[in-house]
């Protein structure tokens, strides 16, 4: 076991890790941040997406030690300072972009990463960007709408109801 230090949601943290400790296990078991989920073991589903130094990564496919010293953001760090939902989170609630909630943290983190790179994505750009995040509940309709809305676009007009 080695002590691994990084910044998580703005706070410097450290916890014990082995070489094989994945970032997702470090967050969930080491730090108790269970908002980040594990939905597969082949780096496909995206339930574990977090931001490392501002970039979306699959935390089940990164060793904690490999990102020591990094700035990590998780779903627990996405709300506004006053505790209210952030823009992407609020859009997901407003547009019913989640049902069981299990893929949701990864969806929100990927969507936020998209909007950071591309503030006004088209429907097609959103769908392609989210191809690494699997949702079994929503058929993606309301997720795409939520991301459109979070980018300030008229989601209702773009998604024929």
């Amino acid at each position: 076991m080695t002590k691994v230090t990084m910044t998580v949601n703005g706070t410097p943290v450290s916890a014990e890790a082995e070489g094989r400790t994945l970032l997702v296990n470090f967050l969930r078991e080491g730090l108790g941040l269970t908002g980040t989920h594990v939905g597969c073991d082949t780096s496909q589903c995206g339930a574990c997406v977090v931001h490392v130094d501002g970039k979306a990564v699959k935390s089940c496919t990164v060793f904690a030690m490999d990102v020591a010293g990094s700035d990590v953001r998780t779903i627990e760090g996405m709300a506004n300072a006053d505790g209210s939902l952030g823009v992407v989170q609020q859009a997901f609630q407003d547009h019913h972009g989640l049902q069981c909630g299990f893929c949701t943290p990864g969806m929100v983190m990927s969507s936020a990463a998209l909007l950071a790179e591309n503030p006004r994505p088209t429907e097609s750009e959103i769908r392609h960007y989210l191809e690494g995040n699997i949702c079994r509940c929503t058929g993606y309709h309301n997720i795409v709408k939520a991301v459109l809305a979070a980018s300030g676009q008229d989601a209702g007009a773009m998604a024929a109801e």
Binding site: S43, G46, V49, V52, K55, A56, V57, K58, T61, V62, S110, A113, L114, Y129, E131, G132, N133
Partner: peptide, 9 residues
Amino acid sequence: IGDPAVRNR
């Protein structure tokens, strides 16, 4: 290649 998160790593 892959998806955005894969491309970042």
